[in-house]
């Protein structure tokens, strides 16, 4: 029997975008927008479905070029347009579960545009991933959003 382990943690990231909240929100809500930034760095998405609404479920298969080993299954728990959305997702690597997350994204109007706050409450499963790597990946994605806005 495999040795089971869990590691719980919380990742908090903030960004200031020079665009109004509705525009930042569209980076998530509109499939064509999201497909532009929804993986870290130069990784690629090989399969992705979109269902961005309360109760909606999406999948995304992705990874480094030539090795799309990761699969994220996302369930949206709350969607308040241009203000806040909350989703839970499980990630597997080569079909082995490595983490489950509960992610809350808050958008607030600021003089410069939009202040984004992302809080990811996460449980790492059986040593399959680390908080440090996940934070790096999420930070890379948020930086890519600035590029498309």
């Amino acid at each position: 029997m495999a040795e089971r382990s869990t590691r719980h943690g919380t990742i908090e990231l903030a960004r200031l975008y020079r665009a109004p909240p509705a525009r930042v929100y569209a980076a998530w809500a509109e499939p064509a927008q999201r497909a532009k930034w929804d993986v870290p760095g130069r990784w690629v998405i090989v399969e992705q479905t979109f269902d961005f609404r309360e109760g909606g479920c999406e999948i995304k298969r992705f990874g480094p070029a030539g090795d799309p080993r990761l699969l994220a299954t996302t369930h949206y728990l709350e969607v308040i347009p241009a203000e806040r959305f909350v989703y839970g997702y499980r990630m597997t690597s080569r079909d082995v579960p490595i983490s489950v997350s509960l992610t809350t994204v808050q958008l607030a109007r600021a003089p410069e545009g939009t202040r984004l706050k992302l809080t990811e409450q996460i449980v790492m499963l059986d040593g399959g991933d680390t908080l440090e790597l996940r934070e790096e990946g999420l930070a890379s994605e948020l930086d890519k959003i600035a590029g498309i806005l």
């Binding site: 869990t6 719980h8 369930h75 728990l77 709350e78 909350v86 839970g88 499980r90 489950v100 997350s101 509960l102 809350t104 409450q121 996460i122 449980v123 499963l125």
Partner: peptide, 19 residues
């Protein structure tokens, strides 16, 4: 591992990840 919410009436009070 379960993700869940608690609503009172129509108001969502909390969301949680329970392991």
């Amino acid at each position: 591992v379960l993700a869940y919410e608690i609503k009172v009436g129509e108001t969502r009070l909390t969301v949680s990840l329970g392991t």
